[in-house]
Protein backbone atom coordinates (compact mmCIF):
# COMPACT_ATOMS: atom_id res chain seq x y z
CA UNK A 1 0.00 0.00 0.00
CA UNK A 2 2.03 2.92 -1.22
CA UNK A 3 -0.43 5.80 -1.20
CA UNK A 4 -0.37 8.00 1.89
CA UNK A 5 -4.16 8.43 1.89
CA UNK A 6 -4.65 4.68 1.92
CA UNK A 7 -2.19 4.28 4.81
CA UNK A 8 -3.99 6.96 6.80
CA UNK A 9 -7.40 5.38 6.19
CA UNK A 10 -6.10 1.94 7.15
CA UNK A 11 -4.51 3.26 10.34
CA UNK A 12 -7.66 5.13 11.32
CA UNK A 13 -9.87 2.10 10.71
CA UNK A 14 -7.49 0.04 12.82
CA UNK A 15 -7.80 2.59 15.60
CA UNK A 16 -11.58 2.59 15.17
CA UNK A 17 -11.62 -1.09 16.19
CA UNK A 18 -10.26 0.15 19.48
CA UNK A 19 -11.95 3.51 19.98
CA UNK A 20 -15.35 2.73 18.33
CA UNK A 21 -16.26 6.35 17.59
CA UNK A 22 -20.10 6.21 17.35
CA UNK A 23 -20.63 8.17 14.08
CA UNK A 24 -18.02 6.15 12.22
CA UNK A 25 -19.23 2.90 13.81
CA UNK A 26 -22.74 3.58 12.49
CA UNK A 27 -21.42 3.85 8.94
CA UNK A 28 -19.50 0.60 9.40
CA UNK A 29 -22.54 -1.16 10.88
CA UNK A 30 -24.75 0.10 8.02
CA UNK A 31 -22.37 -1.43 5.48
CA UNK A 32 -22.13 -4.70 7.42
CA UNK A 33 -25.90 -4.89 7.66
CA UNK A 34 -26.26 -4.42 3.92
CA UNK A 35 -24.00 -7.36 3.13
CA UNK A 36 -23.88 -9.57 6.17
CA UNK A 37 -26.21 -12.59 6.40
CA UNK A 38 -26.29 -12.54 10.22
CA UNK A 39 -24.92 -15.09 12.70
CA UNK A 40 -27.67 -17.71 12.45
CA UNK A 41 -26.73 -20.48 10.07
CA UNK A 42 -29.37 -21.14 7.43
CA UNK A 43 -30.12 -24.62 6.08
CA UNK A 44 -28.09 -23.70 3.00
CA UNK A 45 -25.00 -22.99 5.10
CA UNK A 46 -25.44 -26.17 7.13
CA UNK A 47 -25.87 -28.22 3.99
CA UNK A 48 -22.74 -26.60 2.60
CA UNK A 49 -20.87 -27.32 5.84
CA UNK A 50 -21.86 -30.98 5.72
CA UNK A 51 -19.98 -31.31 2.45
CA UNK A 52 -16.67 -30.05 3.89
CA UNK A 53 -13.49 -32.12 4.24
CA UNK A 54 -10.82 -31.77 6.85
CA UNK A 55 -7.75 -33.17 5.15
CA UNK A 56 -5.37 -31.16 3.03
CA UNK A 57 -5.19 -32.00 -0.63
CA UNK A 58 -2.12 -32.46 -2.79
CA UNK A 59 -0.57 -30.08 -5.28
CA UNK A 60 1.47 -26.96 -4.60
CA UNK A 61 1.49 -24.31 -1.89
CA UNK A 62 -1.86 -23.37 -0.45
CA UNK A 63 -2.90 -19.70 -0.50
CA UNK A 64 -4.74 -18.40 2.53
CA UNK A 65 -8.45 -18.18 1.79
CA UNK A 66 -8.38 -20.92 -0.84
CA UNK A 67 -11.92 -22.31 -0.62
CA UNK A 68 -10.92 -25.57 -2.26
CA UNK A 69 -8.17 -26.64 0.13
CA UNK A 70 -8.19 -26.50 3.92
CA UNK A 71 -5.17 -25.30 5.92
CA UNK A 72 -2.93 -28.18 6.89
CA UNK A 73 -3.15 -28.21 10.66
CA UNK A 74 -6.30 -28.30 12.74
CA UNK A 75 -9.81 -29.58 12.47
CA UNK A 76 -11.36 -27.76 9.51
CA UNK A 77 -14.78 -27.77 8.00
CA UNK A 78 -16.17 -25.78 5.11
CA UNK A 79 -19.09 -23.38 5.47
CA UNK A 80 -20.48 -20.14 4.11
CA UNK A 81 -19.20 -17.36 6.35
CA UNK A 82 -22.05 -14.97 7.30
CA UNK A 83 -19.49 -12.19 7.80
CA UNK A 84 -17.44 -12.63 4.62
CA UNK A 85 -20.38 -13.83 2.56
CA UNK A 86 -18.10 -16.35 0.86
CA UNK A 87 -17.31 -20.07 1.33
CA UNK A 88 -14.56 -20.34 3.92
CA UNK A 89 -12.71 -22.89 5.99
CA UNK A 90 -13.73 -22.86 9.65
CA UNK A 91 -11.49 -24.25 12.35
CA UNK A 92 -13.25 -26.09 15.16
CA UNK A 93 -11.84 -24.89 18.47
CA UNK A 94 -12.91 -25.10 22.08
CA UNK A 95 -16.17 -26.63 23.14
CA UNK A 96 -19.76 -26.70 22.04
CA UNK A 97 -19.29 -26.82 18.28
CA UNK A 98 -17.51 -23.46 18.02
CA UNK A 99 -15.72 -22.82 14.75
CA UNK A 100 -13.85 -19.76 13.42
CA UNK A 101 -13.54 -18.43 9.88
CA UNK A 102 -10.02 -18.71 8.48
CA UNK A 103 -10.19 -15.23 6.96
CA UNK A 104 -12.16 -13.03 9.34
CA UNK A 105 -12.29 -15.16 12.51
CA UNK A 106 -16.08 -14.89 12.62
CA UNK A 107 -17.48 -17.41 15.08
CA UNK A 108 -20.22 -19.86 14.16
CA UNK A 109 -21.61 -22.96 15.81
CA UNK A 110 -21.53 -26.19 13.89
Amino acid sequence: MSDQTERKIKRLFDYQRFEQEPGLQKLIDDTKERYSGGRILSDDILEFAAGGVNRPQDGGERQKGDPNRPPEKGDWTKAMCPECGCPRWFERRGHGGRAFCEMCNFEIFI
Binding site: Y15, Q16, E21, G23, L24
Partner: peptide, 11 residues
Amino acid sequence: LLQKETLQELS
Protein backbone atom coordinates in the same frame (compact mmCIF):
# COMPACT_ATOMS: atom_id res chain seq x y z
CA LEU B 1 -3.21 11.00 13.91
CA LEU B 2 -5.14 8.69 16.20
CA GLN B 3 -7.63 10.80 18.08
CA LYS B 4 -11.42 10.85 18.29
CA GLU B 5 -11.45 14.01 16.20
CA THR B 6 -9.63 12.36 13.30
CA LEU B 7 -12.05 9.43 13.45
CA GLN B 8 -14.87 11.96 13.21
CA GLU B 9 -13.17 13.49 10.20
CA LEU B 10 -12.85 10.07 8.59
CA SER B 11 -16.57 9.68 9.19
